[in-house]
Design a protein around this nucleic acid. Structure first.
Lengths: 339, 339
DNA sequence: CTGAAAGCGCTTACAG
DNA sequence: CTGAAAGCGCTTACAG
């Protein structure tokens, strides 16, 4: 077992001081070409690589980004991580990922942990519980300590920082408008509980679209789902007890479940009922029929978030707190689930 | 902006030495209860948290695990990360994720980077390119330096280390056997190029099942797909030019694509052709018809891999290199795509 | 041109 | 009971 070689080893072996070795390897002109080359050759031979932890401590920057997300199994979040990773790598950053599992406590613990020196800045999306509690002290604390934070998708107005979002309200509006244009008037909505920020915004977009077309809002065909794991039953009830000719679902899970339920009840999609989902993920693409959906480009969101964070980290001056909110554009991907 | 407080600050403020502060906070009995409590109170008030980077340097362990995987967008890999995360967290470890994008070079760069002090050990799955090149020097190097590595799913016999796999060969055998039991004799195979270890093993299982039932292997209904992105065309050709009554696909993408192709060509699944996939992911579950598949429990694999790594990290003695290979059991999930 | 010293933030064996 | 010193692996201002 060949232990990692350090400056100390090299110095001893070559009978020079550690400073000289360090300077030689950084090509300092202070050092004679002679010793410089000698040291460099030796270092190369023994495959010397500086210890990044030592550098982090010395430089007070780690070149790593902390990501805190509710779930990694959601395709959308995986997509965002991928987007972050690629930009981060390009700029020489690594990425450390923590999952909050939609829990406030885990979100707090993870943030505090990472904030103690492990990373230079955060990219995060709020857990459901955090959104429900509206307690963001852990985030403002981190920001107060001078650590930049970029929030994406599930954000809050209560915290001032850089943000990357889509216009959920507008995107939903457009999706519903699309259905209205096709001549549908009875459009059901399958959404989440209001405290999930994006669900709420998408619900508002739905309402706005109906209103602006003078279609009355009918609460009996608006389904707010609490327990996502068991959404099938709730959706089944909706289909059994109400009639409508189109459905707008605020995520792809609800959309695909609606299709399955419709099929079971002998309804054909899109002939009997049209369905539009949200988030252009793997499910929408491979469902049969494939699902018309609002595409929400996670890669792009991740890219942007990483770029914003790194820009802030690397801008020398402490920027006079000029926070930006980037809106990533969405568009409707028409597939088989709508007429 | 309130900067993070350090031992030094506290020491100065309380007019004691740094050593005293450190010992007080670690509850050393060396220190009088008086000062101990005083220091602790002060630290609590100012929300002191030790700098983890400094601790890492001092202790020569970082309490973080490096994960290197080909892709995060594959549901299976996301699932494994999730499994790793949860066990890691339980034991106080963080997780740093790097993507190789199926590229040998990126895999090497990422490993070298992380090996320079950032992590205590690796959990990884080989990139396709690495499997093709059969060049594993970066891995043996890391192991030589005394850093433990656990490989999962895409592993190699050329490296001695802990491994977590499923019995791909057996699982495929059982899946195909299931089809044979249903009375099918013409069973097509949709698989990957041979250098992908798991694809190869699954192909072998397929062959074994046929042989053991005296069914001749017919190369014209074995499709080896090179370009996964554009597998539709290849699968279409298979369906157009050959006849068979069942399909075994080595991943869920191939399985769902087969279903879509069959539908387009007017074939009904499972009435006209039965289909079995591999990996029990989101696609299999939400496809219509939902897909009968070999479940490959990524969460469990991740849990196990993390446990093995942490065990090795925390076992005092340098274990006399007794490496284990854990086989996670699979089973067939019967759904709608088979009769 | 080279090296000793100080420092990043911490811990701990040792002296007093 | 308290603190100075050494050390983890590095960098850099300063002396010589």
């Amino acid at each position: 077992m060949r232990r990692k070689v350090t400056l100390k080893h090299i110095a001893k072996e070559l009978d020079v001081s550690i400073s000289t070795v360090s300077k030689s390897l950084r090509n300092s002109s202070e050092i004679s070409e002679d010793t410089r080359l000698k040291v460099q050759a030796f270092a190369k031979l023994y495959n010397y690589k500086p210890n990044l932890i030592a550098l982090s401590l010395k430089n007070k920057k780690t070149k790593t980004i902390g990501i805190i997300i509710p779930e990694i199994i959601h395709h959308f979040f995986a997509t965002v991580i991928s987007g972050i990773e690629h930009v981060a790598n390009e700029y020489g950053y690594n990425v450390i990922v923590c999952l909050s599992d939609e829990s406030f406590d885990k979100e707090v613990i993870n943030m505090e942990m990472l904030a103690n020196g492990s990373i230079d800045g955060f990219i995060m999306s709020l857990s459901k519980e955090t959104q429900l509690k509206k307690d963001f002290h852990h985030i403002s604390e981190v920001i107060n300590q001078g650590m930049p934070v970029v929030m994406f998708d599930r954000v809050t107005n209560d915290i001032l920082c850089d943000k990357v979002i889509i216009d959920d309200n507008l995107a939903a509006y457009e999706a519903v408008h699309h259905l209205i244009n096709k001549g549908f008037k009875k459009i059901a909505l399958i959404t989440t509980i209001d405290y999930v920020s994006v669900g709420k915004l998408r619900t508002e977009g739905y309402s706005k679209a109906l209103k602006s077309n003078d279609i009355p809002i009918n609460d009996s065909i608006i389904l707010k789902i609490e327990d996502i794991e068991n959404c099938t039953e709730a959706i089944e009830n909706l289909f059994k007890n109400q009639t409508f000719d189109a459905v707008f679902a605020v995520n792809e899970l609800f959309a695909v479940t609606a299709i399955k339920v419709a099929n079971h009840l002998g309804l054909k999609v899109p002939q009997d009922v049209s369905i539009i989902g949200f988030t252009d993920g793997i499910i929408s693409k491979y469902s049969s029929p494939s699902i018309t959906t609002v595409s929400q480009n996670g890669i792009k969101m991740g890219n942007k978030a990483a770029k914003m964070l790194i820009d802030r980290l690397e801008s020398e001056e402490e920027e006079e707190e000029h926070y930006k909110t980037e809106v990533i554009e969405t568009h409707l991907v028409e597939r088989e689930s709508t007429l």
